[in-house]
Every structure is written in structure tokens, then in C-alpha cells.
Design a protein around this nucleic acid. Sequence first.
DNA 1: ATTATAGGCTAATATTTATTAGCTGTCAAG
DNA 2: CTTGACAGCTAATAAATATTAGCCTATAAT
Lengths: 207, 207
Amino acid sequence: MNTKSRILDASLTLFSEKGYHAVSVAEIADAVGIKAPSLYKHYKSKRDIFNGILAEMQTRYDKQTATLQMNGSNPTVDAGIFSSVSEDALIQMGIGLFTYFLHDDYVCRFRKMLTIEQFHDAELGALYTKQYTDDPLSYQSRILSMLGACGLFRPVNADVMALHFYAPLYLLLTLCDREPEREPEALRLLEQHIKQFNLIYKKENTQ
Amino acid sequence: MNTKSRILDASLTLFSEKGYHAVSVAEIADAVGIKAPSLYKHYKSKRDIFNGILAEMQTRYDKQTATLQMNGSNPTVDAGIFSSVSEDALIQMGIGLFTYFLHDDYVCRFRKMLTIEQFHDAELGALYTKQYTDDPLSYQSRILSMLGACGLFRPVNADVMALHFYAPLYLLLTLCDREPEREPEALRLLEQHIKQFNLIYKKENTQ
DNA sequence: ATTATAGGCTAATATTTATTAGCTGTCAAG
DNA sequence: CTTGACAGCTAATAAATATTAGCCTATAAT
């Protein structure tokens, strides 16, 4: 990997643990293996490095949501895939989303950085809200309302249902960001959560 | 209010918006209305101010959880109060907890500060987990399992049920920390959430 | 072969920052 | 009345920090 992106990478790691202001350019340079002034051959300021991270994440997120159609803009999702939805499929969706959020290194570090910087800059706060509240909720809401339309679930408010499905995932995600060693426990709870979610919302209540 | 606690107060406000490292002692002094060196008549270092905030919060939290018995240690909760639980009571409990977390000025600012500093210091991360994950979940779990024992709810895992009850509250809380203007929307969703929770989990499903 | 560029370095700089030293006025206790 | 502690101030200091200037080398282009 070239120096320019190694700088971005090292900075993201440091920013995600200590926050932008608590990290010095000398520290970043150290992590890259060069001296501080050399950074300025690649970025014109410390802030510029931060902006680089932001830009990089923007393109990654756009690419990701485009394939998942997870952004709010896309009006329809193919219903065919879900016509034969099973409990396992639901669990797969939940666990899949969870482990993607938690194990994709870039996503994970970027989320931590956003967490730290969210109150300092309104724009970053809005980005956090979009990525971890509004987009996932509207995505889940769309999917669940289609499943509801297929007659798989009871006829209840899909937005609230999406909240029921996603909020535990979100809580466990932020928990694992803080305490990664609790991931097994979180995964167990997550699976139980989805099973119970399915049990509770399914139309035919067989126990 | 005396200077010593005014310093704590101003510092908490600043730390909760920009984080410890991004705030200078001069900035704190400015907010208090004195000069920076005067701070050292009351605290021996910047870190000492931070510790003061921590200590203050510790006593407040202990006091609060003692009256609510919200800490994990207390084994029993009086069941009598809940024998005649209604939907309104559940809503009251949820909204009450939510607005307490969101409107108590000290609690709110301290939570934001913890949010910002949680990855920087493992001890603060553990404190966050305790205050906003483990304690609330075990508290809700205890209450809900008692309600379950009273035959009010279906016989399902109380831990997961607590997660279903609390996680949406948590998600909406962190949302309002970022975007306070969305509080009305959050309150509406929260109420719908609890109603649907009640509807879904109640033993006799009267639609 | 020469030249130019990219990317590293050291040394220097200007600013910010936390903290200390030491002075002054207020005010309560002896 | 005097004394001493408290709580403010200005000035000074030492360290850290972001950034600039200018030098050197390798390598790619002309």
C-alpha cells in the first residue's frame, strides 16, 4: 500500500481510539514509520487527513448501500426473494448485518471515530444518524413491511417493528465497540432476540 | 453557587461537546469568568477537574440507582406494585426513564462526555456499559420477569424481553443526544414502541 | 545524460497549552 | 488591629504542537 493511504489508515486507527484532537501529527507519522513533516508531502494539513478519511468512507458507504439498497432513496425492493422467508433467513439477515458492522475493519474504526466526534461537528452527527439510525431503520422497515404484505407477519406498524428488530442489534453493536471480548455473549443474545422477534411477530403462533 | 462547583459545571459542558483534549483550561476559565491560573486555586490540574466530575457523577448515580434499585446487586423488587400493571404504567415507565435520561442536565452532559471518552479509557468504557447497558437491562429484566411470574406476559426469556423493551429507548436516546430537535418524533416512536411491545407480549391477545 | 519530480529528512518557527511564581485585596478570627 | 487564609490577578515558563523551509536521494521522463 502506498504512503498516502497508509497515512489515512494509521490516522483512522488513532482517531477512532483517542479522537481527532488527542492525536498529534507526530503520532500519526510514527505509526506510518516516517517523520511528521513528511506527512505534508501528501496532505496539506492535519484536517486534510481527516477530510481524506471522510471522503474515503463516503465512497465506500455509497458503494455498500447501493448494492444493499440500504439508502432511503430506493423505493422498491424485490419481494420475490422474501416470499419464502424463514426464521433462519431472518437470523442470517440480523447476524450478517451485525458482523459486517463489527468486523469490517474500516467500517468499525470509522464508526468509533464518528462516535467520538459526533457532538463536535453537526455534520458528523448527521452522518452518524444517517448511517446508524435512519438508513438502517428505513431499510428494515421496507423489508419488514413487504414481509407483512406477504402475510407473514401480523398487521402492525412496520416502523416500530423495524425499531424492534434493529435497536437491539444497535445496542449490542455499541456494546461490542466498547468491549469486544463480549462479542460471543452479544451474538448469543442477538440470535435469541431474532428468534423471539420471529416467534412474537409471526402470524401463526405455534407456541 | 461557589467557584469550585461552577468550574466543574462549565468543564462538564465543554467536555461533553468537544471532549477532554479539545478543551483548554483557558476556555474553562473563560466560561467560569476567571483567568486560567485561578483554576489552580481549586484544582491541582486539568485532569483533577475531570476526576472531580467523575466523582460527582458517581455519588449522583449511586443515589439515583439506590432509590430506583436499578443496580444489579439488589436481589428483590416489591412485586405488589406491579400486580395491577397497565399499558399506561408501562408507557409511564419507559417515557419516564427516557425523559429522565434526556432532560436531567447533569446526566445528559455526563453521558455525552462518556460517549466521547469511552474508547480512550477502558474504565470510562466500562462505566458507560454499566450505566447504559448492563444496569438498565438487568433492571428491566428483573421487573419484566416478575410481571411474567404474575402471569401478565407470555412465558418468554426475560433477558431478551428486556432487550426488546430497552434497546429502542437507548437508540432513541442516543439519537436525541445528537439531534435534540427530533425529540418529539422520538417520543412518538417510543410510545408506539411500548404500545406494540405490550400488545405483542401480553398473554391474552385482544387484537 | 540530464532533468525534474516525488518523497523522505533535519532544523527552525510560531502558537498554543498547562502549570508555576509571586503579587494583591478581602475578610473573618484572634 | 493584626494576621493569615482564600481567591483572584499578571507575568513567566517549559513543553507540545502544527506547519514551513530547505536539503538530499532515487527514480522516471525527456
